[in-house]
Design a protein around this nucleic acid. Structure first.
Ligand SMILES: [Zn+2]
Ligand SMILES: [Zn+2]
Ligand SMILES: [Zn+2]
Ligand SMILES: [Zn+2]
Lengths: 130, 130
DNA sequence: AACGCTGTGTAATAATATAACATTTATAAG
DNA sequence: CTTATAAATGTTATATTATTACACAGCGTT
């Protein structure tokens, strides 16, 4: 079977919502917003989120339990993500820095572990909040 | 007031438990284990965890909602953490790599954001699980 | 038609984390 | 020693985040 490129109805509804927001959304806030579209249960949201993360359309901000759209095709299917997070206003931005990516991609520990993914979150104060 | 160096009873109980484990522990598993020591409620655990994270005695593995002891004084009070996580056996190891730390410490985005903390999690397969 | 795979809908429940309140203990200042 | 204040405690209740379990539907392959 071919890899599925077309999203299902639920997946589309939820991706649309997340893409319209420039900031991360939480699962239950998504659920609240899509109730009018016939999505009634948490599981329907979590299933769509799982798929969307898997195909790299969205990323999970682990420290916030929230989901943000990927507007950049540079992420190799969600396998290499870097975010900056303002601890005051909670603004989240995805970072694409070539040198940093290279460094992380090439990182080898001394244990012979084989990495296929990483997630890096920077915390601080954005310009507005300094 | 001086910075408190001596931990309280609850904090000690919980730190002891986490330090005895070489792998991350979850809050409710900690709660279960310390009930025999008179700690009865989730909040008592979460409060101790919060303090222990703050003073750098333990770290939270964000992607796993679990807590691991820091055996290394190199972490500047929990402000700069790197972990490797095996996606098969869930083994977690804290990484201290000078070059990587330098690179991350010196990272500047193009938004003028001031960072004071970061957390990096590498995922893959450990030697045993390859 | 039979199969495997992915997704759906629904109900129930598990797992993670915090709010609110009254009280106690530790530390520092006067 | 007394008082003020910050930090921690104990308890109950509740909020938030996420998964299990089950029955079934759609689709492409054999
Ligand atoms: Zn991305
Ligand atoms: Zn900000
Ligand atoms: Zn550490
Ligand atoms: Zn492993």
């Amino acid at each position: 079977m071919q890899k599925q490129e077309t999203l299902t109805k639920n997946q589309k509804i939820i991706l649309d919502l997340i893409e319209k927001s420039d900031q991360p959304l939480k699962a239950y806030s998504i659920l609240f917003d899509v109730k009018k579209k016939g999505i009634n249960a948490p599981l329907q949201v979590y299933r769509a989120l799982k798929k969307l993360v898997k195909i790299g359309k969205i990323h999970k901000i682990e420290s916030r339990n929230a989901f943000i759209a990927c507007k950049n095709s540079k992420c190799q299917i969600a396998k290499a993500t870097v975010f900056s997070i303002c601890e005051s206003c909670e603004d989240v931005t995805e970072i694409h820095d070539h040198k940093l990516s290279e460094h992380l991609r090439d990182f080898k520990d001394n244990k012979g572990m084989k990495y296929n993914k990483y997630n890096l979150e920077f915390f601080g104060l954005c310009k507005k909040c300094v």
